[in-house]
């Protein structure tokens, strides 16, 4: 497991997992996981469904208690501490807005529980709604809002309590693509402004890469790799990470041996590969392999070539449609080359 270096300046730890497990009968949803999340960090938990990322989030929120190990928030062991006594707030996947209350009352719920006077909590709620660009929507019921607006209300409702850690459970999952991209930018901006720790659960690798300071990739109850987005993409530690984060050509067995010259799986990103006519000269630091184009998919910004390698196996090559370049036809022989440093040797 490689560790990110977000802690270039010494920061205190917001949340840490110490050997945490959460089992449901024989199912190990989270299995002996340890990590530290720093104060003010935008931390993503990335993984497919059932990988343990949501359970980890629920362990921090207090909706679940660990089977063993301990969850520590700001130095305090949270074992047995109920959600209402934790200084964290959650933005739920389905938003979980109270349908019988209007938007202002939803946002002010936490303040009402803390017995803040009505006028004061209304003022703060309106202020929060302004921040999420929903000024003037206060009197509406949640059912009268669009998905994106509900999402903002949920965010305002969590942030009004000034938690030290904000948990977000796939908050953009139900939104359409355009809105999702817009909300990614806004969420990132809001996180910078309020400066609190965001822990963000998602199965969307694009979301995790674009917003986070660090990403933990979950698989089958444990963390495969925890690193900064750039490092995760360029330097995946395992075959799972290489496959889950971005598109990757995974080569195994004989095909891998023919290319890397050693045993063990390796992987290369489609956009790192160049296409050339057979017999072309390649730079000194490059590796090359011959193959035949089997499929061509035109995707607008780029074109995807599937190439069957002479040494066995198949790789996908992504070529940017910048200007006219070598454009092989289906069935044509080609030479593939890439810089040696882009070949990623994988564990597991």
């Amino acid at each position: 497991m490689s560790k990110g270096d977000a802690a270039a300046t010494p920061q205190s730890t917001a949340v840490s997992f110490r050997d945490v497990s959460r089992h449901y009968g024989s199912v190990k949803a989270v299995d002996r996981v340890s990590f530290d999340i720093l104060d003010g960090e935008f931390f993503a938990m990335l993984g497919p469904s059932g990988s343990g990322k949501t359970t980890s989030l629920r362990l921090i929120a207090g909706f679940e208690q660990p089977t063993s190990g301990s969850v520590i928030i700001h130095g305090k062991d949270m074992n047995g501490v109920p959600p209402y006594d934790r200084d964290v707030n959650t933005v739920f996947q389905d938003y979980a807005l109270f349908p019988h209350m209007n938007v202002v009352d939803n946002v002010a719920y936490g303040l009402m529980i803390r017995k803040v006077p009505a006028a004061e909590r209304r003022r703060q709620a309106e202020e929060m709604l302004e921040m999420v660009a929903l000024g003037g929507f206060g009197q509406r019921k949640p059912s009268q809002l669009s998905g994106g607006q509900r999402q903002r209300v949920a965010l305002a409702r969590a942030l009004i309590n000034h938690p030290s850690v904000l948990l977000l459970d796939e908050p953009l999952g139900a939104l359409d693509l355009k809105l999702r991209e817009q909300m990614q930018v806004e969420l990132k901006a809001i996180q910078r402004r309020v400066g609190i720790t965001f822990i963000y659960v998602t199965h969307d690798q694009g979301e995790a890469l674009s917003m986070s300071d660090r990403v933990a990739v979950f698989n089958q109850g444990h963390i495969e790799q925890m690193a900064r987005p750039h490092e995760l993409y360029e330097n995946p530690a395992t075959a799972f990470v290489a496959g889950f984060v971005g598109v990757s050509n995974l080569l195994q067995g004989a095909a891998a041996r023919a290319i890397s010259g050693q045993d063990g799986a390796c992987s290369i990103r489609p956009e790192k590969i160049y296409l050339a006519t057979p017999g072309s000269a390649v730079p000194a630091n490059a590796m090359s392999v011959a193959g035949r184009v089997t499929t061509i998919l035109y995707l607008g910004a780029n074109t995807r070539y599937d190439v069957a390698l002479e040494s066995g196996g198949e790789v996908t090559v992504a070529v940017q449609n910048r200007e006219s370049h070598f454009e092989p036809a289906e069935g044509e022989q080609v030479l593939l080359w890439w810089e040696a440093r882009h070949l990623m040797r994988l564990a597991g």
Partner: peptide, 23 residues
């Protein structure tokens, strides 16, 4: 009543009795 509503109430600081009365 979805369970997430009760969790949200608890997450926002409400004790079980308050969650019962308010949600």
């Amino acid at each position: 009543v979805p369970r997430s509503l009760l969790e949200a109430s608890s997450d926002l600081g409400a004790r079980p009795g308050e969650t019962f009365r308010k949600v």
